[in-house]
């Protein structure tokens, strides 16, 4: 027997502005819904009972992924994981993001889930967050006050909390221009295929003509409340050729910044052990993908 039956009002606006107004009108208990992969499961389990659902699926601008004239790529919030996994606009270092998308869950979830929904839910073990930090992405947000953009690093506040204020929605993820020589790699370890990450590593790197690292960004997933970027390790690797010694030293700097918990997927201690391996694997795979092109 249901102890309380709350009616959920369902809306499907055509513009971002309408969506924001509909959410504002209904207040605290209204929720945007994108793919529904997570929200519908929470509703079925009666963990969340929204008074109003505002579907973002009929808003044209949110369903587009566009290559902008300045070389940046704008991924609309409603883009499904499957679309992002196969996105032809994502080249060079941007492939850290398509790589993450391709490793989310399983095909049904990738057909359903969206980038906007995933980052708004901000599961500490989700795949996009570290990839977006490594890609130096910006998150575009719309709310009653209009639109704003913030770096991915400032968006994920940890343990399911984001920089979204009540009534705000994610409208797009913007990836900055990248050079053709840059590369991106996402490595994920999970207990069984299709599970959330036990730990993951995302890196983007650029090299000069003599294969020396000129820029590098690195973020770890599943080992804290949100993606953890380790600038000290990035600095330690810039100027190297990713020699084994340099990578081992950098991995130590990374491990020192992690804040994992024990959970059903594994112990905190185990996570600290696998991250250096994931990092090593990311660099090995990067070097392999780069070499044929040289």
């Amino acid at each position: 027997m249901l102890t309380s039956m709350t009616k959920t009002d369902f809306q499907k606006p055509k513009t971002v502005e309408e969506a924001v107004t509909l959410l504002k009108e209904a207040g605290d208990d209204a929720r945007p819904i994108s793919g529904g992969a997570t929200l519908v499961a929470l509703m079925n389990a009666r963990l969340v009972q929204p008074s109003r659902l505002v579907s973002l699926s009929a808003i044209d601008e949110l369903t587009q992924c566009t290559y902008q004239s300045d070389g940046s790529v704008r991924i609309g919030a409603m883009r499904r994981h499957r679309q992002t996994a196969f996105e032809s606009n994502l080249k060079a270092a941007h492939q850290v993001v398509s790589g993450a998308a391709s490793q989310i869950a399983n095909p049904p979830v990738r057909n359903m889930g969206t980038i906007g929904g995933s980052i708004s839910f901000a599961d500490p073990a989700a795949d996009y967050p570290p990839s977006l930090v490594a890609a130096n992405a910006e998150i575009e947000i719309a709310g009653p006050e209009g639109r704003r953009r913030i770096p991915a690093e400032e968006f994920f506040l940890g343990w399911y909390e984001t920089a979204l204020e009540p009534g705000e929605i994610v409208t797009a993820v913007i990836l900055p221009p990248v050079s053709e020589s840059s590369v991106g790699q996402y490595e994920k370890l999970c207990r069984i295929a299709g599970d959330f990450a036990l730990a993951s590593v995302a890196v983007t790197i650029d090299f000069n003509a003599s294969n020396t690292v000129t820029s590098l960004r690195l973020a770890v997933g599943g080992c804290g409340g949100g993606p953890i970027r380790v600038e000290a390790a990035e600095q330690a690797l810039i100027g190297t050729k990713l020699e084994l010694d340099a990578v081992v030293d950098a991995a130590e700097l990374v491990v020192a910044e992690l804040d994992p918990i024990d959970d059903v997927r594994g112990s905190a201690e185990y996570r600290l052990k696998v991250v250096p391996r994931l990092l090593q694997r990311a660099f090995n795979n990067l070097v392999e993908t780069r070499e044929p092109a040289q």
């Binding site: 500490p124 940890g158 343990w159 909390e161 409340g225 804040d259 918990i261 024990d262 959970d263 905190a268």
Partner: peptide
């Protein structure tokens, strides 16, 4: 584990 992190925050 996670509730402790949330409580600490």
């Amino acid at each position: 584990g996670m509730m402790k992190k949330i409580a600490t925050r």
